[in-house]
């Protein structure tokens, strides 16, 4: 494992912790898109189908359990917890799941490395992860007040994807036959979706003003 991959995973972990901190400690999910969180739960459920049958390393198994567990508990908190659900901005979080899930499923059925259930589901999870942030970005744009933790959460998620690209570049030059077009193209698209957010995030940081995305 190289430093970019580890930094990427740690940034991903940090994003989840920031979100759990907001939800668990402050008992608020204001500005957080339930749609995006449900899509992430679906991403991990379809990607880690082999968690108990295909062992890679202790590190991988533990991280997979953390991402699965946190994704489902975040969804549970927003839907079921009596205090947290009150802060959920339902009226602005209107992105429809099937606009995202259906095209990803069709694409996975058409473009994959091997036509088996597990590989198609794995490919579906890559396509879905690439666009799962869209409901969250739409919600941020509609929310006039982006609080600090929500801003940090989205920034950490974007940083995680950017670090994974550096990891692929590193692995491409250091490992023989390391080519994964499907992973790379969907990962690149996923990272590009954050470009706009990054721009305004750094602007607000540089000018020391509150983060706000233009309508």
């Amino acid at each position: 494992m190289n430093i970019f991959r580890l930094a990427g995973d740690m940034t991903h972990l940090a994003s989840v912790l920031v979100l759990l901190l907001k939800i668990h400690t402050i008992k608020s999910c204001a500005g957080i898109s339930l749609k995006t969180q449900e899509l992430y739960a679906l991403v991990f459920a379809s990607r880690y189908l082999d968690i108990f049958t295909h062992y890679v390393s202790f590190y991988n198994t533990v991280m997979k359990l953390i991402f699965l567990g946190s994704a489902f508990s975040i969804v549970w908190y927003i839907r079921r917890h009596k205090l947290v659900r009150r802060s959920y901005d339902k009226d602005h979080d209107t992105f429809r799941h099937y606009f995202i899930v259906l095209p990803c499923l069709i694409l996975a059925l058409l473009i994959h490395e091997k036509f088996t259930f597990r590989v198609v589901m794995w490919t579906f999870s890559l396509y879905l992860e690439a666009v799962a942030i869209l409901p969250q970005l739409v919600l941020l744009q509609r929310t006039r007040n982006i609080d600090n933790l929500t801003g940090q959460y989205v920034f950490l998620l974007g940083a995680y994807r950017a670090l994974y690209i550096l990891n692929w570049v590193y692995r491409y030059f250091t490992e023989p036959h390391y080519v994964h077009w499907i992973t790379w193209i969907s990962g690149l698209i996923q990272t590009l979706l954050y470009a706009d957010f990054f721009y305004y995030y750094f602007q607000s940081w540089k000018n020391n003003v509150k983060l706000e995305l233009p309508a």
């Binding site: 991959r5 082999d50 295909h54 991280m63 490395e113 590989v119 992973t183």
Partner: peptide
């Protein structure tokens, strides 16, 4: 060619 399931990334 490496099987995608043996992909070691998260």
């Amino acid at each position: 060619k490496e099987h995608p399931q043996s992909h070691d990334e998260l």
